[in-house]
Design a protein around this nucleic acid. Structure first.
Lengths: 334, 334
DNA sequence: CTGTTAGCGCATTCAA
DNA sequence: TTGAATGCGCTAACAG
């Protein structure tokens, strides 16, 4: 089928106008029953499918929404997208995904692609290397709504959805301390992420609260790669007084760090304890998982993000910026 | 910006025609240097972005490709999508994702959405419950190319990309036997999937080859849910002569089954061994992973699938059906 | 109840 | 070198 059936073709074969066909197809009340039936019948026989592009052109809407996030392969993000896709479908939208790979330049590129591509709105979880928001300002200038989730840019005039990471960090560290541990390290994320600051803040809060002096050698940043995590964890273990526990930026960092510990003969949840963020499902398959993890409910975050976005798309006049804080939860294992 | 800048607006402000603007923007040689510069300058000043919908309407192409697969949250699939997205971007396409959740009706629905939405082509990994291909025939009728990957429908006239699962099963079972194990069970997938038959065929081949009689109680199907897997694994363990090893449909099935074993006090890779398919990255974090897993290279499958699809989109005349078999690899752990 | 007309934003053929 | 005219496929206001 080189040329798909169009309304014009149906109109020709039926000897009526295109507008008649158009109205018949939409079951417009002003069309004669007889005509309507003939049109529908022929349309079915010719496998007529309305050309979405033409409709979009008229409606000035594509019903496409773009999602930009670091990695599709991280279950945290794929869970969020899964939720987003679910809501999107139920509301008649499609989801276009693009990964930034935590690379600032690539994030710029794909965000640009999305506007060139004509999405009605964009959901973003920032690349860890992004330190400049000009590409989002650009999108705003075009009147395309954005909603940030998890890795948000709170200084932009767009809505965002996130969890209170500081509170989460506080709970996690409190829990580690309640186990009688005091030499607690922080394997934090890159300084470009707000979430990194927030974890640090929670960590410091609890340490101060308990009068535990902060050992600066215990606080390290990783770029979220396996290699960097392994290096930083090794450095921690090489300290004259290695930590008894580590609060990791997320489960991936925790897992990579735990692997280093095991290679050095340390028993997890015995010689050394881990706290982390995300509570990824596959941790439930581990015999020695991080003992505490902050569940961040990516499914809820994704759901809320797309609800906000669709609201912004469908009623741009009345929509105002929102900051939604999704409740987190400390999960204790074993 | 309620009304984005259009060529018409630029033309008006410059006192030229839309056609001039159009040509100037494309750097058409027949446009005076002076005019071209003025157009470009004003376009930039007004933040002109060409309306992709209008261009699509003219070009009769959307540069959107749809991907339908069971679950975005399974790393096997997210890895494939990740590869697909990568190639897509580099070729100027965008990826629209939809998950079938292994549900036949939902698969029908989203495939229909994709054609209504106007994608140029579709990549599919079948839902496990799909037993009828009429929705794909429908797509074919509209001249939209499809490429299947991993969970393929080889009886359809579309290209497909997969690994030789039978060969993989043969290698895995051979390996288990080489460990001195002979009571080997098969925790297979749903009967609707070709991949299920293929695993069975490999299993039977090796058992016959070694003269090991096939215990029909050892061969079970699961619907890929955690609960069903747990139930079937329990049944295996309840047999008067429980298996010494299990070949699982994939790593998820293996993990769920292994959990049941552990709960019963069995030591993995000691009291009972597991072979599986996928070799998911997070298995490397397990202290007792499946001892053998068939790596299926989802990244390669995705890459090949989209290459075939783009070829079919861009040269529909010369394109012919292809079946691509991606090499697999037996990964032995520990 | 149906046809006519116009237009969405852009590319392109044909004139000038 | 530029403009005028046409059409991609569809919707909708207006007219009859």
């Amino acid at each position: 089928m080189v040329h798909p059936t169009t309304m014009k073709e149906i109109a020709r074969q039926l000897g009526v106008t295109v507008s008649t066909v158009s109205r018949a197809l939409q079951n417009h009340p002003s069309i004669g029953l007889r005509t309507r039936e003939r049109v529908h019948e022929l349309a079915k026989r010719l496998d007529y499918v309305p050309n979405p592009t033409a409709i979009n052109l008229k409606r000035r809407r594509t019903h496409n929404i773009g999602v930009v996030l670091p990695f599709l392969t991280e279950q945290f993000f794929s869970t969020a997208i899964s939720a987003i896709e679910d809501v999107a479908i139920s509301k008649g939208y499609s989801v276009v995904v693009m990964q930034s790979r935590n690379d600032y330049e690539r994030e710029r590129l794909v965000v640009g692609n999305l506007v060139k591509h004509g999405v009605d709105g964009i959901i973003v979880s920032l690349a860890s290397e992004t330190q400049n928001n000009s590409h989002f300002l650009e999108v705003n200038k075009h009147g395309i709504p954005i909603v940030f989730f998890d890795r948000v840019a709170r200084n932009l005039p767009n809505s965002c959805v996130y969890v209170d990471v500081t509170a989460g960090a506080i709970e996690a560290v409190e829990y580690l301390i309640s186990l009688g541990l005091s030499r607690i390290a922080l394997l934090n994320g890159p300084g470009t992420l707000q979430a990194t600051d927030e974890r640090l803040k929670g960590y410091v809060t609890v340490m101060n609260r308990h009068g535990i002096p902060i050992n600066r050698a215990y606080v390290r940043s990783v770029n979220l790669s396996k290699e960097d995590t392994a290096r930083k964890m090794s450095e921690l273990l090489d300290l004259p007084e290695p930590p008894q526990a580590v609060l990791a930026f997320n489960d991936y960092v925790a897992l990579d760090a735990m692997q280093v510990c095991r290679q050095r003969g340390l028993a997890i949840n015995q010689d050394i304890y881990f706290g982390s963020f995300s509570n990824l499902p596959f941790c439930s398959y581990l015999e020695h998982p991080p003992i505490a993890s902050i569940e961040q409910f990516p499914h809820d975050m994704g759901t809320k993000a797309i609800q906000l976005l669709i609201a912004a798309i469908e009623d741009p006049q009345h929509f105002t910026r929102e900051e939604v804080v999704i409740p987190h939860k400390l999960i204790v294992r074993q």
